[in-house]
Every structure is written in C-alpha cells, then in structure tokens.
Write a protein that binds this DNA or RNA. Structure first.
Lengths: 327, 327
DNA sequence: TTGAAAGCGCTAACAG
DNA sequence: CTGTTAGCGCTTTCAA
C-alpha cells in the first residue's frame, strides 16, 4: 500500500479511498492509484483491515459432518447467504466430538468471526458457549437447541414430523410398528421417538419397548438387532426409521429379505424415489434451515436486538410406496 | 491484553509469552497471567497475530459444490488434514461459475490464507491464478489440472477408469454401449469419453456418435434424450454413465422401464448397493484425493521446493450386478 | 527472566 | 478533495 501510494504520488489514505470505492477522489488520482495497483499487483490485506475495523466479514459454521447430506445442504444454504453478504465461511465438523466442537468454536472466536452458526454437541458442558455469548459473539443454533441458553435457534418439527410418518403407517393398517434410531438420548432422536409414541397413543396402540431400537453407530450395528427383531415371534409389519442413517441402514438389511415390512423414514435422501418401492419419507428442509439460520445471524449483525427466537420448520410427508404397503 | 498485563502486574510481552507457552517465564508470573486471563475472559486476537506474524493458520478450499457428495468427501478429508495442522478451513463453492470462482479465490488471497486447494473452473481465463501464483501463494489443484500452470495437482485416472468400466460391459457381451455425460467439453467428461472410446477400439467395436449423449444439466434434460435413445431402432444394450449425476439421472429415467439396459457408472454413490440390481461403478477415492491435496499443500507450506507434481489416483471397479446383466 | 518500544497493513478522524 | 497521524492487538528484537 505504501508502495502504491509512492508510485501513484498520493497519500496512503487516497489509496485506501480508491480501494474502498470512496467517491470523493479526483478522477486523475483515482486513475493513478488504479494503475499503480495493477502495476504492483497490490491486494488489500483483509487481516489488517479486520484488525482496524473490527469487522471480520466472515462467519463460522460448525456442523456435525460435512459428509452428511443433511449438513452439506445446510452448509450450502449458509454459504449462499454469506456470499450475498460478502462474507466468507469458515467451516468445521465436530463429528459428535464435544472436545473438537469446543476447539473449533474457540478457534472461530479467536479469529473474531462476526458470528457463529452451530449444531451444538449434546454430550458435554457448554459453558464456553455461555462465555462467548456474554462476550457478545452473535450465535445461532441449528438442528438442536441448547438448554439454558436463550439464543436464536432453527429447528425441525421433530415430534410433529415423526407423528405424521407413523400416522401414515397406522392409516395403512399397521399396528406393530418398530422405531429405529441412533442414540436415543440425542435431541432429535428423543423427539422423534416421542412423536412415534404420540401417534401410537392417539391410535390406541400400546407401546411395545421391544419394537424400539437405538444404536450408537447405526451402520455397523443395525443388522443384527434388526434381523432378530424381524425374525421374532410377533414381528413388526412396519418400520419407522427416525433418521437418514437408520433408514439407509434398514434398507441395506432388508435388501436381502423377502416379505419386507413397510417403511417410513425421517429425512429425505437421494434415490429414495429410485428404489422399489420408492421410500416414503418425512422430509425436512435443510436448505431452508441453513438459510433461515444465516438470515437470523445477519439480522443480529445488523444490530437487531429483538428477543431471541426459535424457528421451527414443518416437515412434509412424501409418499412413494414403501409406507403404503399393507401388511 | 493490555488489561491482562495490568491486572497481572506484568508487561505486555510476558502476557504474550504465557499465551504462547514460552517456557522462559517464572512460575509466579505465569500463574498471575493465567488468572488474569481467566478473570477477564481474555482470548488472543488471531487477526492481529496474523498481521504481525504473517501466518494465517488457515487455508482456502474452492470446490464445485458442497452439496455434491464427491466434493463433500474431498472437503471432509481436507478438513481433517487441516485440523491436524491446526489450520482452519475457509470454504466456498463455485457452482461452475467462473466469475464466482475468481471472486472467492481473490477473497481468500485478500485474507492472506496460507494456501489454496482449488477445483479449477474451465470456462474462463485463469490469469488471476497465475498472478497469485507468481505472488507466491501456495496452490494445489484437485480433480482437474489447469493447462499452462505447472502446479501440484491431484487427479483421478479418468481414462483408465472409464476404460475399465466399459471393458467390463464388453466382457459381458455388450457391443452397443451408450455413453452419457454432462458437458462433454469438461476435463473429466472428455477424458472419460476418451476411455470409453479406447475400450471400444481395443475390442474392435466401431464408435457410434449416436450413442454418446452430453447434456448441460443432466438432471433436467436427460429424460428425453435417453428415452429416445433407448426407444430407437437399434438401442444400446448397456449404458456407461460418466459421472455421478448422469448415473443417478439415468437410474431415474430407467426406473419406470422394463427391459433395462446394463449399467456401469463412473463414481460410486450411496445406496448403489441397495438398488436392485446393485449398480456397478468405477469408484474414485475422493477422501484420498482431498487428503493428498492437503498434504501436498502443507508440504509446500513447510518450504518443500521440489518441482510441482501431479498425482493420479487409480479407480476401482465395484461389481454389484447392473453391469453383469447380459443383453 | 522481563519490559519497553517498534511496527505488521490498514482505516478514520482531523486538519488543511 | 487530500495528506498526516494515531492507533487496532499482537509479536519480537533489544536492553536491562
């Protein structure tokens, strides 16, 4: 910048003004500066700019795993909003590791990002979040709330969505409906299980704990338990899989079986329509979730001080055949 | 930091030393500083640190689309390597938009990231990349090379992979094999088409242009052309789909048809094994690509000045049934 | 072992 | 309209 000013024969501030598109610069000097910039291959150092202005023009996104389509769609939506606001995206995956989540959030904060969008981990203290929050860092939670922290949050209607899926099965004559989830303690799983139970209760179907299976790592461990459930004396005639990975895991297990039970899965996935029968799902809208979270965040960065809000997005039942099979 | 120093009754440099784990600080002062830090909720400003030291501790990743599983796996691998090097990841998607790609790369450069991993756009000048390169920015290209720029690059063996897929079809008795791609001009597509032609030639099968279809946007436009190709007088008995999206598009189109042709797709995808028949694919290894690109980059950041290298990763034919169907 | 001071590249008063 | 100047928060000689 110093060199540019020297070459153009102007002061530092004139260079700064030209770079930032300030109008009050004479055309002659503007031109001289632009030429010098081109000549020297100058590019503004945003790090220094950030230090001076306090605006990082970047936000941090912490999700569970970028390899999960649900989260990569959220990520895409956040990126679009950030782009439209000339903000860059720092992103990280926690992989359900609370220590890692903490580390990444603190790293973002050290960078002084303008704000944070976080899928909170559930298995550890979130004191550090409270610290940052009181330090004035803008934050939006997505997919799960954090108990005790009153912060903007974007959620899916897990209970209602699960209910609609299970009701669909019940409407098609099923009364023995199994529920497959990953870790039952997780926010989304527990809410979807609640929706499942609500739907059963509303239909006067007794809850049978033997029909609920929760795993730590669905992909690896689902095969055994699910097989024995299906081979049991009084097997379920339908399955409600409470998340993406459970649905796909169940499809794998059932691939080799005849007499497959009906299936409704929570969360849509690619090729759900190309399987036969097509897989009926309770679809979330990850793009909308990401977009709303980002918009909420930028609204805060624009000094909106209204009370924190929680947005709950509805789900959509997409019927493709697998849930319509009668027992 | 100033406040911390005051509260602890030490100088600025002592605070700096404690924060950075410098050993030459007396235990008493170390303790005092640590307490002050905790009390004040101090956190080092990495932006200022960056300005002073010149090390951003972050890298930029530009891919085509984070919503594409191929790229999200690359992204995941890059993130892991970055994490292990205490580096943050700035990420952006170009969506095949050269102007957007340019904008994001320049934004990364303005942030003075330590290095860049880029899936280059093919449809516009890359002069700006040359500029940054000569300015000394470390760079690795992934998935496609940039003609005229001698830079570290990680590629898939597109020609060899496509050949192996088509050879598989030929080995199962097919002689009329269609090739479906997205834009034929793209680097990967053109190489895979070359592999397709090589395999035909090696088997003495004449090349029929009527059996090659290239689209701009596979998902939307594949249905019509593919249907008419399959309904033509002398239809193909097998399909080679040269990328992920073409494979999935073709599966959708063929879903409603009886007498489906055999199929081999380039690039693996989730549930390829759950369809019936399972979809035989030429699998790439996006995780390895991302890992190698990131390792290459960090090696450069560690001042490795050996000549730029191009790493070409082999493919793996995964047979699941769809390619083994005889005509 | 410690502190004072210079300065990374930039912006924003402020004075002209 | 333009240049000078004072920092933003940090690290790093350099002396003490």
């Amino acid at each position: 910048m110093h060199d540019v000013a020297a070459l153009a024969g102007v002061g530092l501030s004139t260079v700064s003004r030209v770079v930032n598109g300030d109008v009050k610069v004479s055309p002659a000097k503007t031109l001289a500066v632009e030429n010098a910039i081109r000549e020297l291959g100058y590019r503004r150092n945003d790090s220094a700019r950030h230090l001076r202005t306090g605006a990082a023009a970047s936000i941090g996104l912490l999700i569970e795993s970028i390899a999960d389509p649900f989260f990569s769609l959220i990520s895409q939506a956040v990126e679009e909003v950030a782009l439209s606001r000339d903000s860059l995206l720092l992103s990280a995956s926690s992989h359900q590791d609370a220590a890692r989540a903490r580390r990444m959030v603190l790293a973002f904060c050290s960078r002084r990002v303008d704000g944070l969008i976080i899928t909170p981990s559930e298995d550890q203290s979130i004191d550090y979040l409270r610290t940052e929050l009181t330090a004035g860092v803008a934050m939006v939670f997505i997919d799960r709330p954090v108990p005790g922290l009153d912060v903007d949050t974007v959620l899916t209607d897990n209970v209602g969505g699960a209910m609609s899926g299970v009701e669909h099965l019940i409407a098609h004559g099923h009364r023995r409906i199994a529920c497959i989830t990953d870790r039952a303690g997780l926010y989304t799983s527990s809410h979807r299980i609640r929706g499942y139970r609500n739907a059963l209760a509303a239909a006067g179907i007794p809850f049978d704990p033997a029909l609920v299976y929760s795993a730590d790592d669905t992909t690896d461990t689902l095969a055994g338990p699910l097989t024995s459930m299906l081979d049991a004396e009084n097997p379920p005639t339908a399955l409600f899989t409470a998340n993406n990975r459970s649905t796909i895991g169940a499809l794998r297990v059932m691939g080799g079986r005849h007499n497959r039970p009906a299936l409704v899965g929570f969360d849509d996935f690619e090729l759900a329509d190309a399987l036969s029968p097509g897989v009926t799902v309770v679809a979330q809208d990850p793009l909308a979730m990401g977009r709303m979270a980002a918009e909420l965040l930028f609204r805060r960065l624009d000094r909106d001080t209204s009370p924190p809000q929680t947005i709950t997005l509805g789900t959509r039942l997409i019927t493709r055949g697998s849930g319509e099979q009668r027992p």
